[in-house]
Every structure is written in C-alpha cells, then in structure tokens.
C-alpha cells in the first residue's frame, strides 16, 4: 500500500518538476549548442553572403593569434592581482574592525558600501576622481607631497584595473573575515594567552589558521566573477593601451561586436569556458584540501 503510494508520489513528483527541468536545460543547452554551432561557422556580420561551415578554422585562427595568449595571461594576472589585493586588504580591514572599540556598527556600514556601487560607476569614479593624473585625488596627494602625478591608466593599466576591482570586492572579503573572527572561540584565545602567546603568535597560530576556510571560500567566489571581468575594463581602458588590459571576456567582445566575427567570438567563448573550468578544477581541489584539513 505505502510502497505503491510512494511510487505514485515519486512519479507525480517527477512530472511536476519536469517543466522547470526542461526550461533550465533549454536555457543552458540552447545557448551552448548555438555557440558550438556558430564556432564552427565562418560567420561575419559584415559579409553579405550566407555563413559557411568552417570546421575548426575559427579555433585554429584563435590558437594561432598571439593576442589570444596575451588575453589568457592578462585574465590570470588580473585574477591573481585582484585576489591578492582584496583578500589581503580584507584581512587587514577585518582585523582592525575586530579590535575597534567603538563605532563598529557605523564602520561596518561604511565598509560594506562599495559593494553596492555598480561596477561601471565604481570604475568611472576611480578613473575620473581618483586616478586621473590631472584632477584625481591620488594626483592631488602626490602633488602635496611634491611628487609628479602618476598616470595610472597609461603606465600601470592592469594594476589600476586590479585596484578598482579589489576595492569593490574588499567589503565582501572583510565581512566574511570579520564574521569568522567573531566566531573564534574566546576560550581558545585565553588558553593561548595563558600559554604565553603574544599578539603576533596569536595571529600566526590561532587567527590565521582559523581564517583559512573563509579565505578559501572568498577566493572561490571571487574567482568565478573575476574570470569574466568586463565592465571595469570597458569603462576605463577599453582593453588598452594596446591590448594591455584585454582579458578573455574583452577579447570576445572585440571579436563579436567590433570585428563582427560571430564565429571567432564563439570559439573564444568556448575556450574561455574550458579555461574557467580548468581554473575552477584547481581551485576546488585547493579549497577542498583546506576544507577537509
């Protein structure tokens, strides 16, 4: 009786989730299939004739293009730089907030606010108000110190973009770290205190190991977003100077909407997916280790 009822219930359940499964599959499969198909076409929007089947020619062209390798390197470099800045800065900020005696609530709101600023707006603010060599705050400070103004986007464009992105992710990292810090057992700290641990030893042997796990989570989540970084580059450098800040996402954009080469862009997009999977694979292994340890 109950067996039949539950079998019935299971069939009904399957039936009921079918629409959403179908919709989700369609949502994923259709674009992927179309990308695969486009990647195999010689499909340029400026050519009058119909798109021709081109086999792997788009991939061959991509892999032969030095610009592609430069974009891969730029993507990884941006990722590493932005991660280092935001995780490192977030850690310092969280440690400071954790010991802040008063105004912690207000400080926390201040710290989180960059997270609510749209990427395009943040990038524009940084470009025009902070890093501009003529009217920027940083140039003004440099001037006050008697130093020549530094043209960030001309001389260190990648670092400049990384700083902007890191600034946006800083609150996220800081808040996660702060939460983790506040969950550190106070008796553990006291035991370490009795064992003779000073602030440095406490940080090294107690606090940092305790933060390994949240750090891994922050790195994973940020990686997912930073691999497809686009708005900040689009608004500030436009991928330049030259192709100094052209990452994979921006390369795809250039191929598709500046060269009107749908086939090439699709091929680059597929390669980007593979690359993201490789990075994700290593990240998950790395983090998996720190989560089980």
């Amino acid at each position: 009786m109950t067996v039949r009822a539950s079998r019935h219930a299971r069939r009904l359940g399957r039936l009921l989730v079918t629409p959403s499964v179908v919709a989700l599959l369609a949502w994923m499969i259709v674009p992927l299939a179309m990308t695969l198909w486009f990647a195999a076409l010689d499909y340029r929007l400026l050519d009058a004739g119909p798109a021709r089947f081109a086999g792997l020619a788009n991939f061959a062209a991509l892999l032969a293009d030095p610009g592609f390798y430069a974009a891969v390197i730029t993507t990884l470099y941006l990722l590493a730089l932005a991660l280092a800045l935001s995780v490192g800065g977030g850690l310092v900020l969280a440690l400071l907030l954790d010991v802040a005696a008063f105004g912690r609530g207000a400080l926390r709101v201040l710290v989180i606010s960059p997270f609510f600023v749209m990427p395009t707006v943040a990038a524009l603010v940084w470009k025009n108000l902070m890093m501009s060599p003529v009217s920027g705050v940083l140039a003004w400070i440099a001037q006050g110190l008697g130093l020549p103004a530094f043209d960030w986007f001309a001389h260190a464009p990648l670092v400049a973009v990384a700083i902007i992105v890191a600034w946006q992710w800083l609150p996220f990292a800081a808040l996660i770290f702060l939460t983790a810090l506040q969950s550190l057992d106070s008796e553990q700290r006291e035991a370490a205190q009795l064992d003779g641990a000073g602030p440095i030893a406490m940080l090294r042997y107690l606090t940092l190991p305790h933060l390994a796990r949240p750090a891994a989570v922050i790195v994973m989540i940020e990686t997912l977003f930073l691999l497809s970084l686009f708005a900040e580059i689009f608004v500030t450098t436009g991928g330049g100077p030259g192709n100094a800040t052209t990452n994979l996402a921006f390369l795809i954009y250039q191929q598709a909407l500046q060269s009107y080469d749908v086939g090439g862009a699709s091929a680059a997009g597929l390669v980007a997916v593979v690359l993201a999977n490789i990075v994700a694979f290593f990240m998950v292994r790395l983090i998996g280790r720190s989560l089980t340890a």
């Binding site: 057992d185 008796e187 553990q188 035991a191 370490a192 042997y205 107690l206 190991p209 390994a212």
Partner: peptide, 14 residues
C-alpha cells in the same frame, strides 16, 4: 599558572 577550560579550548588545527 595553567588552566584547563570547561570547553577544553584545544587548538583545532594543531
């Protein structure tokens, strides 16, 4: 002085 805490307060990653 050495103290033994009710929660033991062992260092979990050591």
């Amino acid at each position: 002085l050495a103290m033994v805490f009710q929660s033991y307060a062992l260092y979990p990653h050591m």
